[in-house]
Amino acid sequence: MAEISIRDALNQALDEEMARDERVFLLGEEVGEYNGAYKVSRGLLDKYGAPRVLDTPIAELGFTGLAVGAATVGLRPVVEWMTFNFALLALDQVINNAAKMRHMSGGQLNVPIVFRGPNGPAEYLSSQHSQALQSLFVHIPGLKVASYATPYDAKGILKSAIRDDNPVVLIESEMAYAWTGEVPDEEYTIPLGKADVKREGSDITLITYSKPLRMVLEAASELESMGVSAEVIDLRSLRPLDEQAIYASVRKTNRAVVIDESWPMASVGSHVAWLISRNCFDVLDAQVELVCSEDVPMPYNHRMELAVQPSVEKIIDASKRVLYME
């Protein structure tokens, strides 16, 4: 076991998969000579050269679509979007082409492609650069969507995504690239579609994914000091969604809080809260709470931007409400 960052875990996954399969190539803005805007692709251009690592023009629709085309005839591209905010320019190619080719061709075509990059707010970046946009992708049948918040998960999930024969969107976070954790020395993968219990508990289930995981684990420790045993579920995969893992936990704790950093309407969080209300209704001891972003575009001012997002305090407050601790 080595202790490495999420950034390096992703780098290892890319490196290993590019070495294993020469159909795998990486493209995006600044991924080559600059080693990636967030240094995830460090060293890969040196090692594999062009055209296996390609610096693209700033033309998200064009290079994303190009990769979709290449995937349709058998290459296995990894598209790095500098951030998901800029992926909005590429949505047509993802939603109308990547997600639809197999279905429209009656199963003749596959699109084995990975789209990945940082999503969600970082700091001091205002409205256009601080958006958690996963709901747009999760909404679409034909896409798979997954996330990670530990180096172990990052490496295992990225490797599986590259080997998957479907378009897979992977949600990362600028703030989490430096987070460290243990990763095995030997090769492993993590199947898409599986949630993970990040902490066991018996009084309440806290369900989250991506960057908020760390905050949720912190809230769980604080709850412990208040005598509450919280179970933390990391969904990891958002489409498909591991519903059984959610229900198994809620059936044990009878209480649930969902934490999602995107906006409340039509989000993964609101969907999961609805699933729990519907499928665990008979065992619930309280309403299901959702801790999410305020329903506003992100302001630049730092105090305001923190107030907009989920926080340990907001998670604890919501937990207290479902535990009737107020």
């Binding site: 001091y124 256009q128 001012n301 730092h302």
Partner: peptide, 29 residues
């Protein structure tokens, strides 16, 4: 990021606007 900023602290460096002066930003994309 102060309230007296041209965009009331909401835009920051990338989003300067002044409608009266016909300056429509400040676009980050």
């Amino acid at each position: 990021g102060k309230i007296t900023g041209c965009s009331r602290g909401k835009g920051g460096s990338m989003h300067m606007f002044d409608a009266e002066k016909h300056f429509l930003g400040g676009n980050g994309i």
